[in-house]
């Protein structure tokens, strides 16, 4: 009932761990994998990156602003860390990649022969020349996906940024580049200012907004993409319970990713999957039958 298929990837349920959440160590990934349909590791680039100084995360009502800054040990080191996962879980592992160019992107998949799929981070809003710097440019998006598709047979997903005038143009570019699915969306550009010190809170000044507050915004992105794309959409942004998941599916997503909700509990995904299961048992439907249903007759 809960199974979904995205390209070649079979998931036992449609709830996936989002990149950058508890995703730097095999031990936390293994714990989250227990209940998730799949897990996405923290985005990794060719070389190691320090990330920004603390404060890098600010939790506020209904949302989180972060500018971790793509901290990463680099592809070689991280591959060793992720390899340890396979002793303890058989859930699909999606490796999230960041790079400055299509050449650099195409050098990365080789480090991760064990990956079930790759997700290109074309959307981190707070790292110079990376992520969103590429993800706002239709041609660059297409080229990067093409380059990665050429070096791997595994499914390749494009994680999109909502910080563009028209996300459907970027989605179409990803599809033309050969993406097997899009992930919508990464965080929204944001800032937070402390009224006592009268300074921005995060060390990087600007960051990205995630959590409950962005759910309706992310949902709209999925809705718009569903109207123009043929490839599957993985929804992401502010999901914290099973009803949110059903909303994303009705808007056009085949699966979802969950990140900030782990602030509430390590077992966030467990509760969502259980709720989803109960709901579908009640209606007697499969996930696939619900995808995009809300569009009908509008």
């Amino acid at each position: 009932m809960l199974e979904v298929v995205i390209s070649d990837l079979k998931l036992e349920n449609p709830v996936i761990l989002a990149s950058g959440i508890l995703g730097s160590k095999w031990s936390s990934l293994a714990k989250v994998a227990e209940f998730s349909g799949a897990i996405v590791a923290k985005s990794v680039g060719l070389n190691s990156r320090e990330g920004y100084k603390n404060p890098v995360v600010l939790n506020q009502e209904c949302s989180i602003v972060n500018a971790v800054g793509l901290a990463s040990p680099g592809a070689k080191e991280f591959s060793k860390e992720l390899e340890k996962l396979f002793k303890v879980t058989n859930k699909p592992l999606i490796v999230s990649l960041f790079a400055q160019s299509s050449e650099e992107f195409s050098s990365l998949p080789n480090y991760f022969p064990f990956a079930s799929a790759f997700e290109l981070n074309l959307s981190c809003p707070h790292a110079e020349k990376l992520g969103m710097a590429i993800g706002v440019d239709e041609k660059a998006v297409k080229d990067c996906i093409k380059a990665v598709k050429e070096v791997t047979d595994k499914p390749v997903f494009a994680k999109l940024t909502p910080n563009v005038t028209d996300i459907t143009k970027i989605g179409i570019a990803a599809e033309k580049g050969g993406a097997d699915a899009v992930v919508a969306v990464n965080t929204f550009k944001a800032i937070s200012i402390d009224v006592v010190s009268r300074k921005p809170v995060l060390s990087n000044v600007k960051g990205g907004l995630s959590g409950k507050a962005i759910k309706p915004l992310a949902l709209r992105c999925v809705w718009d993409l569903y109207e123009v794309l043929d490839i599957p959409i993985i929804g992401c942004g502010g999901i914290s319970n099973w009803k949110d998941v059903v909303e994303f599916i009705l808007a056009g997503a085949i699966a979802v990713q969950v990140g900030s909700a782990f602030y509430e509990s390590y077992r966030a995904v467990e509760g969502i999957v259980k709720g989803l299961n109960d709901y579908l048992s009640y209606t007697g439907e499969k996930i696939e039958e619900l995808v995009g249903l809300a569009h009908g007759g509008v």
Binding site: G20, I21, L22, G23, S24, K25, S27, S28, A30, K31, K42, N54, V56, V57, N59, I64, N66, V68, G259, S260, F262, Y263, Y266
Partner: peptide, 18 residues
Amino acid sequence: MKCGIGICGSCVTECGKR
């Protein structure tokens, strides 16, 4: 520690606890 609230993963132990 970085986030202090259980999402970034930097404080995770070998047995997966935050």
